[in-house]
Design a protein around this nucleic acid. Structure first.
Length: 618
RNA sequence: GGGGCGGUAGCUCAAUUGGUUAGAGUACCGGACUGUCGAUCCGGUGGUUGCGGGUUCGAGUCCCGUCCGCCUCGCCA
């Protein structure tokens, strides 16, 4: 076999005259019969043109060369020379070509289901199901090779940064104990302990805390996590986190370390200097943006106009405002009227769009969305204009209205109106083209720390308290006393406790989340109690953690980044499957290997499992 | 679990209101061709219209069920 001396992206004018060997895939063939044949040879590094000249080969060899087809694997030996037919500026190797003296077909291909060409046939890629089934062909596309290599660079940059900062990379178990609080888990039956099951970790949360108790001081891991929930375009059941934990820190130190990491990563990945990352309390994010991960690349902020709306005769405002009662810090239970001013909306937002917004907010539980335009004379027009006339001046002042604007209103309970307008704000921004493409297109990267989350919220279904982040999140330092002394039945106090959690938000996307952890057994027990766990239940599930906390636990905290989403940002895709070498579909299937698949009766017997699945009839 | 879009040649798509033998590009096969670079030109092979049922004189097209892919709500401590 001819062993290559160079790769297909390497040869330049300086190599002219050299005898070289290349190997790779046939990317294109351009034959002129037995007289002259061109082959574009491709590997991960690039494309090089190789030439078969009829004067140097017998007709049988030329015939063989003339029948090379896309994706045949070949190796060639030959001489580098300047391109006789002129440069091809599309290729980095485009000034030279290799005149073949010897060649071997290393792997003849069968006809392919599709060609790994980024432009695809007719400018379109094959559909995702067919590309998934033949993933190894799709991954040959230069765009996919670029993504794999970007992901690799991200791993390396990450490991360098944390190594330089004294973090130990430590692996934690994949076969793990079930802790059924958060997401649904994947279960693995045990053979040696009949009737018992492992779970795959939703995250290494408890292990990394215990590593702190174990004196590891600083831990990091690029780890696989598993959550058996329905996927989305940016979510897979099996995904990767950059997970870390630090001892003897408060949230300032963790956030500083994270800001340094983000700065390093963006510098390494795309040469971008991340400016100081601003911080925004959760409540402010909810008030101004209606969401805990605000996209701060554009305005369209939300304004509470309840006071003004109360002075109108509009029953759909005043009836809503009469509902409920306020709460001191979070989770307000009152009825509110909120509005978004859309500058220039009178022109940009068609009737069809604003009608659509009514339906859109209804899908988030709101009663509807009203719209008014401000005409050139500065008067309200259309929709609920007549109800607003009496408070026109106040509305203009509080919303900063100008002729040509549109205002969108939602009146509902605080939580519903906030959520609906938060979602609507993003939809309007998309509709009128306010969102720049991040990264590669030169658009801005807007980072934000969101802090001061509530510790607890009510579960919508059961009405029980649940931890907003997770049950190991500590109260903010100045809240600890209030929390420890709070009556668990004192709803208003409990819901106003602020946690020591923090998220990093990039362009409206949560890319990392973490917290200072509870390192005090008493505080941890109180959290479990509040979450409705008896001491016995807490011990049953988390005895190892509670014990660990009782044997000399350092204060500690950490954070986890969603690695897949980071890569998505750097390579500019909205599809998480693009950045995972072997992804799964919406039903969690791997189209290439056909996982999941049936287990044999024998396999099931070995692990003491009996299937209750009834095969479909017929 | 709910909602939406889609499934026609290996691939990407078309096919009028339900109406003749389901077409095109590309890939593949054969042929021509000595400077191409998405080579070109000529010819050819290729179809269980996802699957099952129904309506109809007649179904790619309409109806019911089902499978698969994508988007989305719920869900994702």
């Amino acid at each position: 076999m001819l062993i290559r001396t160079h790769n297909c992206g390497q040869l330049r004018e300086t190599n002219i005259g050299a005898t070289v060997r290349l190997a790779g895939w046939v990317n294109a063939y351009r034959g002129h019969g037995t007289g002259l044949v061109f082959i574009d040879l491709r590997d991960r590094y690039g494309v090089t043109q190789v030439v078969f000249d009829g004067e140097q080969h017998d007709p049988d060899t030329m015939k063989l060369a003339d029948h090379l087809r896309n994706e045949d694997v070949i190796a060639v030996e030959g001489t580098v020379r300047i391109r006789v037919g002129g440069e091809n500026p599309k290729l980095v190797t485009g000034k030279v070509e290799v005149v073949v003296s010897k060649f071997e077909v290393l792997g003849k291909t069968d006809p392919l289901p599709f060609l790994p060409d980024d432009s695809g046939s007719g400018g379109k890629l094959a559909n995702e199901d067919i590309r998934g089934k033949y993933r190894y062909i799709d991954l040959r596309r230069p765009a996919m090779q670029h993504i794999l290599s970007s992901r690799h660079r991200l791993y390396q940059s990450t490991r360098r940064y944390f190594d330089e900062n004294g973090f130990l990379e430590i692996e934690t178990p994949i076969l793990y104990k079930s802790t059924p609080e958060g997401a649904r888990e994947f279960l693995v039956p045990s053979r040696n302990v009949p009737g018992s099951w492992y779970a795959l970790p939703q995250s290494p949360q408890l292990f990394k805390q215990i590593l702190m108790v174990a004196g590891c001081d600083r831990y990091m891991q690029i780890c696989r996590c598993f959550r058996d929930e329905d996927p989305r375009a940016d979510r897979q059941a099996e995904f990767t986190q950059i997970d870390l934990e630090m001892s003897f820190v408060r949230r300032e130190q963790v956030m500083e370390m994270m800001e340094g990491f983000v700065r390093r990563l963006w510098k390494d990945m795309c040469g971008y200097d991340v400016p100081p990352i601003p911080r925004m309390p959760y409540r402010e994010a909810m008030e101004r943006f209606g969401i805990d991960r605000p996209d701060t690349r554009y305005g369209l902020e939300i304004t509470d106009i309840s006071e003004v709306a109360a002075r109108t005769d509009a029953a759909f405002f005043t009836e809503t405002l009469a509902k409920g009662a306020d709460r001191p810090r979070f989770n307000s239970k009152r009825g509110v009227v909120k509005a978004i001013r859309i500058p220039g909306g009178a022109e940009k937002l068609t009737r069809k769009l604003t009608d659509g917004y009514h339906e859109f907010v209804r899908s988030f539980g709101a009663g509807g969305c009203a719209a008014v335009k401000v005409n050139a004379q500065g008067d309200f027009e259309t929709g609920i204009a007549k109800f607003l006339a009496p408070v026109k001046n106040e509305l203009f002042a509080v919303l900063g209205l100008r002729p040509g604007d549109t205002v969108l209103f939602v009146a509902d309970l605080y939580a519903v109106a906030t959520k609906a307008l938060g979602e609507l704000r993003q939809k309007v921004a998309r509709d009128i083209g306010l969102i720049p493409k991040p990264g590669s297109e030169g658009g801005p990267w807007n980072f934000l720390f969101v802090i001061d989350f509530p510790m607890f919220e009510r579960d919508k279904e059961s009405g029980r308290w649940i931890a907003m982040h997770h049950p190991f999140t500590a109260p903010r330092d100045d809240q600890a006393d209030a929390f420890v002394h709070a009556d668990v039945n004192d709803e208003i106090t409990i819901e106003s406790i602020v946690s020591a959690g923090y998220d990093i938000v990039l362009n409206g996307q949560e890319i990392a989340g973490g917290s200072i952890r509870i390192h005090d057994r008493t505080v941890q027990s109180k959290v479990f109690q509040l979450l409705g766990m008896t001491p016995e239940q807490a011990r049953e599930k988390f005895s190892f953690l509670l014990e660990a906390l009782s044997y000399g636990a350092p204060p500690h905290g950490g954070i986890a980044f969603g690695l897949d989403r980071l890569v998505m940002n750097f390579v500019g895709t909205a599809n998480i499957r693009d950045v995972i070498a072997f992804p799964k579909t919406q039903t969690g299937q791997d189209l290439m290997t056909s996982a999941p698949s049936k287990a044999t009766d024998e396999q099931l017997r070995d692990v003491f499992v009996k299937s209750t699945h009834e095969p479909p009839r017929g």
